[in-house]
């Protein structure tokens, strides 16, 4: 079947078998930042924004996403054409929140959703925001810190 997706702002008409997942489709068309960790919604490595909410792309049929906007980690940086990192990406880098980096795309996406809907989250809310994204390297301490700092930075730039 033919479906239409707007991936990272770019409208695309794609062929997809009706049973294909969004994860499979996105990786197939080159969005390798969407990671495969369990294919059952238990790890969050494949998280993307569907319209503006974080979802596990392994649980979404591509057909269900037909006509919707999808944002992957590749679409976060330089959306203003400057190539600048998203504040969450920047904070992850600066505060040691990335170790192997395999869970980072999904976790960054989850954090972007969180901060879009809750610009001033408590630590508990940050933890809940990334609670569906498993990381085996870090212990989450640095991610929580990074998201807190990214939130501050985003609030400041919103005030300006």
């Amino acid at each position: 079947m033919k479906i239409e997706l707007i991936v990272n702002g770019k409208q695309q008409e794609l062929d997809s078998a009706p049973g294909e997942t969004l994860l499979h489709l996105l990786r197939r068309i080159g969005y390798k930042g969407v990671k495969k960790g369990c294919e059952s919604g238990d790890c969050g490595a494949c998280a993307v924004l569907l319209d503006d909410r974080v979802v596990n792309s392994c649980l979404v049929l591509a057909a269900k996403a037909d006509g919707h906007r999808v944002t992957t980690v590749e679409g976060l940086a330089g959306q203003d054409k400057t190539g600048e990192l998203h504040p969450v990406q920047e904070a992850f880098l600066e505060h040691g929140a990335v170790q192997c980096g395999y869970c980072s795309p999904g976790m960054i996406i989850a954090a972007v959703d969180l901060l879009a809907h809750n610009p001033n989250p408590s630590d508990q809310e940050i933890k809940e925001g990334i609670s569906g994204n498993l990381c085996r390297c870090t212990g989450y301490v640095k991610q929580i810190e990074a998201i807190r700092i990214a939130a501050e930075k985003m609030r400041k730039s919103a005030d300006v």
């Binding site: 969005y31 390798k32 930042g33 969407v34 990671k35 992957t72 980690v73 590749e74 976060l76 940086a77 990192l85 990406q89 992850f92 880098l93 990335v98 980096g101 395999y102 980072s104 795309p105 960054i108």
Partner: peptide
């Protein structure tokens, strides 16, 4: 780090 947080095909 930059490649990892921007989802570059590194794996």
């Amino acid at each position: 780090g930059i490649a990892l947080v921007t989802g570059k095909p590194k794996f």
